[in-house]
Design a protein around this nucleic acid. Structure first.
Lengths: 207, 207
DNA sequence: TTGCCAACTGTACGGGTGTTCAGTTACGTT
DNA sequence: AACGTAACTGAACACCCGTACAGTTGGCAA
């Protein structure tokens, strides 16, 4: 054999990317060999190097591609105007949906950061910080307008993102709750965190 | 050489444990070789096998030791009676302190779970669930007594733990905030989450 | 139908992997 | 002072690692 019938570079490149994501997510970057990846897509090791410079580039492409796509999609989806409360709701729903749809890439993206070279890591950090700032800007706006009651916007940002991203450690489609229910519950908790409980009117009104 | 002067099995066993924790935290289980660990404690590879059956046992001992110690310490520290609010505060403070004091073990403990064998993993899961239940029991009690306004105690438990554990991804002693300040801020957010904002009286009282 | 090139194989390179074990040395006990 | 044993070395085992590259084959254009 050599070239295989029906083969095309495009298809193999995608298969390589997908196989790497799947295997890195399951076993971890360091624990997966180039030979395992090759076997997964039905090819010999050498062929992989037509599509990636080396193993490190493979990881970096996955992570930076993920972060860039996340930022791009967030930019397209999230409203830049409207009330802080509405913008916060949009962010929470977007974050949950995006992360629940891509559990493997999300998992790799904060599990394998330390396996990046220093340069690659620094670049990812910039993107991650930019994403966090999308939320922090909403919180700042809400605090400035007294819609939200927050002591420290940066800390609240980190706490919320950790809380929301945590979903991906236990979420499985077809679980106890639908995605819509999960969104509703987390939205409630997030609203509570910024001091505007949905039940506020009920509690404040004479009973 | 052979046996080295001043050597003792006890000391080497501890040095092995510590070096493994340090290196696993920094580079990941799969990326660290037995030879690197041996070099770190100034010994030849073969000597390690006097203190651990194999590499897997080394990881499992670290993780299960960590979880058992966490549960034990929690049991000694946390009050079993008192108001749900007081118990919740105790839990939050305990969790933050414990995790901030042991960043490496905490990091390994949810980073390297997938490198455990199936059996070892299952055992750790039981312990982790038991720890989560410590918090969920408090939330259930608070909900039952109408101190807390929670829709789903299990989801709130997971959200809180993810939020609190997230601290260890950015915390560095000597940072912007003291540990006490961090505790106070997270406590505020947690209280908000269960629907009892500290500012409630202020907001409700005539201004 | 020939020829070109993208796609891929097969093999090799130097080095690292976890683990085992016969041999060696320091320490504590008698 | 002699001995037993705890602590460790050094070398070896069989195998896996990432990467490179000359050679081979299928698809497509001329």
């Amino acid at each position: 054999m050599a070239r295989r019938s029906g083969s095309s570079g495009e298809k193999t490149a995608i298969a390589l990317h997908d196989a790497a994501v799947r295997l890195f997510a399951r076993h971890g970057f360091a624990a997966v060999s180039m030979r395992q990846i090759a076997a997964e897509i039905g090819v010999q090791v050498g062929a992989l190097y037509l599509y990636t410079a080396d193993k490190q580039a493979l990881l970096n492409d996955i992570l930076s591609g993920h972060m860039e796509h996340l930022l791009l999609t967030a930019g397209e989806t999230l409203p830049v105007s409207g009330s802080p409360a509405a913008r916060l709701e949009a962010f929470v729903r977007f974050h949950i949906r995006y992360h629940v749809l891509r559990p493997e890439k999300v998992f790799i993206s904060y599990m394998e950061l330390r396996n990046l070279t220093e340069d690659n890591f620094a670049a990812i950090e910039v993107l991650r910080r930019r994403y966090e700032d999308l939320l922090e800007d909403i919180l700042k706006a809400g605090k400035a307008g007294r819609d939200f009651h927050i002591t420290d916007t940066r800390l609240t940002t980190l706490a919320m993102i950790a809380m929301l991203t945590g979903i991906s450690t236990w979420y499985k489609s077809g679980g106890r709750m639908t995605q819509e229910e999960i969104e509703a519950h987390y939205l409630e908790m997030v609203n509570n965190m910024v001091g505007r409980p949905l039940a506020a009117e009920l509690l404040a009104s004479p009973s």
